[in-house]
Simulated assay, not measured.
Amino acid sequence: MINLDYLLAFVTAADKGSFSAAGRHIGKSQSTISVSVSNLELDLGVSLFDRTGKYPVLTQEGERLYQQAKVLMRQADRITNYTSGLRDQVENSLVIGLDPLVPFSLIETALEKISQKFPFTQIKIVKEKGNSLLEQLDEDNVDFVLYLTEEAIPDYYEFACIHMLEWTSVCSPDSEFADLGVVSNELLTTDRQIICTSLYEHKVLGAVSTMSQSIWLAHDQDDMIRMVEQGIGWAVLPKIMLEERVALGTLIEFTPEFMKTGGSFGVDLVWKESASRGPVAQYLRELLFAAG
């Protein structure tokens, strides 16, 4: 059976270029690294390093075994991390309900950090309208919901506002709105507006953001952006989704009369008060609170 300590010494020595550098890296003496590599060579019956020069150089056999050894070490690390997760009662999965009106960018950094810290926990993202997500939360089909509140949240839920979402109006560079300082409500009502179904049907935002007599409905906000870029109409969208496109010039921000003072709306993180929470759920909550 291959000794993992010997294997670690071999891989580290190959990576660092010498036994002394390998020893410093893993906190062991040069002689310990040298003995470990020699013992591995005896166990395998091959010479892994040519030691005739100032620094050890991988032999042809050593080069082949080095690649295999790295794979074995990664597998050993995965097993160690997995068993550590079992001891710490790390969740096997976590389901996050995301309202289509909530930009994915609000959670992508948190998800990246979770993937690194808890690599064996499966994350599932469910995109549905807010009220539908609350029903799934009640039925324990999702663990967290991020949405733009439409009505009072029931007392048996815990919630926190994690971000104030700023909204702005945009059009294509070819639109007549692009060169206007403030676009009047009268002009807005006569020009086609692009709006996604979730926003159009939102009990609060739908009423205050729908102005035009000519409406085209899109599936989600990403579709809205593409349609506005094509010059099909104007739209009200979260500013965080538009910064790159405005910088590139494919979208132009303008000020509508009905939003002269700007507009913002809170994104709430909602979870069940009675639900038990493992380390992944707690970490997600911490990350989202900190980002807000």
Rank of each mutant, 00 (worst) to 15 (best):
N131A: 08
Y157M: 12
Y82K: 13
L94T: 06
V46W: 02
I123M: 10
L98A: 11
G130I: 00
G45H: 02
S115Y: 10
G85F: 04
N141E: 10
G45L: 04
Y82R: 14
E135V: 10
V57Q: 15
E128A: 13
L86M: 14
Q116E: 14
I125M: 05
I114R: 00
E139Q: 14
F118K: 02
I107L: 03
T80G: 01
E139S: 12
S132L: 00
V46L: 06
I162V: 11
D138L: 06
L98T: 05
V142S: 03
K113D: 07
L165A: 00
T121S: 08
S105P: 04
K113F: 05
G97T: 11
V102C: 07
L72N: 03
E166F: 01
H163A: 09
Y82G: 03
E63A: 11
L133A: 13
D88Y: 01
L111M: 15
R78P: 02
L86S: 09
Y55Q: 05
L48C: 09
L106C: 08
K54A: 11
F120G: 04
N141A: 02
L101F: 02
E61N: 14
A69R: 07
E108Q: 10
V71K: 11
L94M: 15
L146M: 12
L101A: 04
P154L: 07
L72K: 11
L86N: 06
R74E: 15
N92E: 13
L165M: 13
L134P: 11
Y156S: 01
G62R: 04
E139C: 04
I107F: 02
L137C: 08
D50T: 03
E166R: 07
S47P: 00
D77S: 14
Q122S: 12
K124S: 09
A152W: 01
L148H: 10
K129V: 10
T52C: 00
F120H: 12
V142C: 08
A76Y: 11
Q75L: 12
V145S: 01
G45R: 02
R64K: 14
S105E: 14
D155Q: 12
K54D: 05
E166H: 02
G62M: 07
Y66M: 05
V57L: 12
E61A: 15
T83I: 00
L72Q: 09
A76H: 12
R87F: 00
G97K: 09
Q122V: 03
F144S: 09
Q60A: 03
E91S: 10
V46P: 01
F120W: 06
E112Q: 08
Q89V: 01
Y157P: 09
P100H: 05
E158Y: 13
S93N: 14
E91Q: 09
R78H: 13
V126G: 07
F104T: 05
Q67P: 01
D99S: 15
A76Q: 07
G62Q: 06
E112I: 11
V126M: 10
N92D: 13
Y66V: 00
I123L: 15
A69W: 04
L146I: 09
C161D: 09
S132C: 00
D99L: 12
A69T: 13
L98S: 09
M164D: 04
L101I: 05
L58A: 05
L58N: 08
F49C: 08
A160K: 15
R51Q: 10
S93P: 04
